[in-house]
């Protein structure tokens, strides 16, 4: 089966880790992930500038490794990301901001990508809150 997984919380929220563990279990169970979509505060889960204390779980790094390792399509909502200061090189340049915190494998795009993923997937599963 095919999953579309949407994440609405930052890397430090339990629900971001929960989404990651769910996504891992889905792949391990032989399922596919059509797309990961990061919206609202979920855009912070994609930030490359998250620094986690060394003795704590680095969920942002785990997301990155998971996406790269499985070559997944990971889209960050551009409007939500701009509002929260999560910028790729193009946007940082466009708005003349000093830092880029969204390198590959993440991709900035619009909410249409959420709808498209929901259309092709068998299940849309959202993670957010506590």
């Amino acid at each position: 089966m095919k999953f579309a997984i949407a994440v609405f919380s930052p890397a430090h929220a339990p629900s971001s880790r929960r989404a990651l563990r769910f996504a891992e279990a889905a792949l391990a169970g032989g399922h596919q992930i059509a797309r990961l979509f990061f919206y609202q505060d979920g855009v912070h889960s994609a930030s490359a500038n998250v620094v986690t204390p060394q003795d704590e779980l680095d969920v942002a790094a785990q997301w990155r490794a998971f996406i790269e390792g499985n070559q997944l399509d990971a889209v960050v909502c551009i409007a939500a990301a701009l509002r929260r200061g999560v910028l790729d090189a193009t946007e940082a340049n466009r708005y003349q901001r000093p830092a880029v915190n969204l390198p590959a494998p993440w991709e900035l795009s619009g909410l249409g990508q959420l709808h498209e993923a929901a259309q092709v997937a068998d299940r849309l599963v959202c993670f957010g809150g506590d």
Binding site: Y39, Q40, A79, A80, R83, G110, G112, L114, H115, E116
Partner: peptide, 18 residues
């Protein structure tokens, strides 16, 4: 921004005629 961002999901989907 939560209420507005929920509306944006609806407006984006409407534009795709869903």
């Amino acid at each position: 921004p939560s209420a507005r961002e929920a509306l944006d999901i609806a407006l984006a989907g409407g534009a795709f005629d869903l």
